[in-house]
Design a binder for these strands. Structure first.
Length: 206
DNA sequence: TGCCCGATTAACT
DNA sequence: GTTAATCGGGCAA
């Protein structure tokens, strides 16, 4: 369980994303294991950074290893980790955690008891961890953030991203195969109307 | 300026 | 299955 340092993020967003599955993500000591995330890059139209820099997305255009926090649908907060060298405007959206630390606090903040409803979704996990606008732009290798790499091999599921209407065919959603804490199940390879993303929609992380 | 559309969620029918 | 909540960005007028 090595501590993740900022240089970890200075790689392709598609190298960072699967490496973060199984990693531990804590915010002020509250959080859990990352089981789902999505990659975004300024070259594809689903990314906030696609149309260039604005006040909201400025952190995406900065150096890797920082938190990009944005307001979703005017209601929720969502957190991304910036990746790749400055200027790539690439990031991973943290979509779901398996709750491990500070569960009582997360239940209080979310107003629900069911473990599966605490952090299964980008808006839910920010509410559970207490992440909001004021944390936008903070470095990920210093408090209140704490990231540790996972131990051992895990099977990674791959599929299309959730809740977007552009670039819908890119298989840029990554998950821990079989986890009960995903925001949605991954479509089975060959399922009706579902494109196949590689053999069995999964691969083994090494 | 005004209008439409979201990287969502919970509460409806 | 559908819809409301609510605000910042993008673009037309």
């Amino acid at each position: 369980m090595a501590r993740i340092v900022r240089s970890f993020f200075a790689r392709s967003v598609h190298a960072v994303a699967p490496d973060l599955i199984g990693a531990t993500f804590l915010f002020n000591g509250v959080g859990g294991r990352i089981v789902e995330l999505e990659a975004y890059h300024h070259t594809e139209p689903a990314a906030h950074s696609y149309r260039g820099q604005t006040e909201r997305n400025a952190v995406m255009f900065g150096p890797p290893g920082y938190a990009y926090v944005y307001r979703s649908y005017g209601i929720h907060w969502c957190v991304n980790f910036t990746c790749e060298p400055k200027g790539s405007a690439a990031a991973v959206l943290i979509r779901a955690l398996e709750p491990l630390e500070g569960i009582a606090k997360m239940r209080r903040r979310r107003g629900v008891h069911d473990l599966r409803l605490l952090c299964s979704g980008p808006g839910r996990l920010c509410e559970a961890l207490g992440i909001s606008r004021v944390h936008n732009g903070l470095a990920l290798d210093a408090p209140p953030f704490e990231l540790h790499s996972g131990a051992g091999e895990v099977e990674i599921a791959v599929g299309p991203r959730i809740g977007i209407t552009k670039a819908v065919d890119l298989p840029w959603r990554y998950g821990l195969k079989g986890s009960r804490f995903l925001s949605k199940p991954f479509p089975h390879a060959g399922e009706k109307g579902v494109p196949t993303f590689g053999k069995d929609n999964a691969r083994t992380k090494v």
